[in-house]
Computed example of a mutant assay.
Amino acid sequence: MKTLFTRCYEQRLAALCLFAGLSWSAQAAPTGPAGSVLTLTGQVIDASTHEPVPYASLSVAGTPAGTVADALGRFQLKVPAQYSHDSLRVVLAGYRTYTASVQDFQQQACPTEAPCVVALVPQPVQPADVAQPAGRVVRRTLGNADYLQTVPQLFPGNAPGIQVGQPIRVKRRAQLEEVSFLVARCTYEYAFFRLNVYPLAADGRPNEQRHLLPAPVYVRVDRSEQAQRVRLDLRQYGLTLEPGQEVAVCLELVSKPGSGELELTNTAANGFLLEKYSASGPWTKVDNYGAGIAATVTELR
């Protein structure tokens, strides 16, 4: 069965995400005989500084309801009424995950005639030890760094929260130094992404309950960067992978760039790539393909 990623590539279409203006209130709006929709609008802030926290992910577990806050922490989340007792999660690397039922969230975080406020508590992070390891050092590139024998693939839409990921596995203890990806074509003026590194669960899909990076890492891709490899230096984070550990290196779209297309390289491979079509949706494995995402690691011997 074809996936959305494959269909997008074949049809050469990109989704257009239309975002309505924030109404700065929490309200239930009728949607017809099937029931009602609770519209939660508000802002994510830092519990310590009270400053806006950009691009936090909001989702209702096990449902289609989800979104990503904007650069000022503002969000609008539509939740069908039948999910009012399900868990709402607000997640961002570097902060403790906020969890509450939708109903409790509305009562506690959404005062009458005022915006909802989510105060994320900073998660203390042990300072990274990035000292040069003793002994022999071997650098390897994992994933897909080959410039040849690649074909362009459309990023599967332009709604915030969509992700594409490449699994990698290390044989020896290693530090993750760099992640790169090759932009085949970009017709947006710009696109704004977050890099996520997740451990793989037993079913081979990312475990989003655990962000391995201690802080958010963002990258802006401009139209002028098409046909170039974009590189992200991660040495400052001192992220160490243990022998045999499998992780997913993922790119998540967090901005709303309007209409346009973004194409990453894609290769035929023996493994698989990973796709997520919405902020709250499940991960899909696409066999025999590899995303044009590569990771450089330093093996510690």
Results as ranks from 00 to 15, higher is better:
3 T>C: 06
13 L>I: 13
13 L>H: 10
18 L>Q: 12
21 G>C: 10
24 W>Y: 07
27 Q>I: 14
33 P>A: 14
35 G>M: 07
41 T>P: 07
44 V>F: 02
46 D>V: 06
71 A>I: 10
71 A>K: 12
74 R>M: 04
85 H>L: 14
87 S>F: 13
88 L>V: 04
89 R>M: 13
94 G>W: 04
98 Y>G: 05
100 A>N: 12
114 A>D: 06
119 A>K: 05
120 L>M: 15
120 L>E: 01
123 Q>F: 11
124 P>M: 11
126 Q>F: 06
127 P>A: 05
128 A>Y: 04
133 P>T: 08
133 P>H: 07
133 P>M: 07
140 R>M: 12
146 D>M: 11
153 Q>F: 13
160 P>I: 00
160 P>H: 05
161 G>H: 00
163 Q>K: 10
165 G>V: 00
166 Q>F: 02
169 R>Y: 00
170 V>H: 05
172 R>D: 10
175 Q>W: 10
179 V>D: 05
181 F>T: 01
183 V>S: 03
187 T>L: 04
187 T>H: 02
206 P>D: 08
211 H>F: 14
216 P>V: 09
217 V>A: 06
222 D>V: 09
224 S>V: 11
226 Q>W: 00
227 A>F: 10
230 V>C: 01
231 R>E: 11
232 L>E: 02
232 L>D: 09
234 L>H: 06
239 L>R: 09
241 L>M: 04
242 E>K: 01
245 Q>W: 01
245 Q>I: 01
246 E>C: 08
246 E>Y: 00
248 A>H: 03
248 A>F: 05
256 K>E: 11
258 G>A: 08
260 G>K: 03
263 E>H: 15
268 A>N: 12
269 A>H: 14
270 N>M: 12
283 W>Y: 15
295 A>C: 12
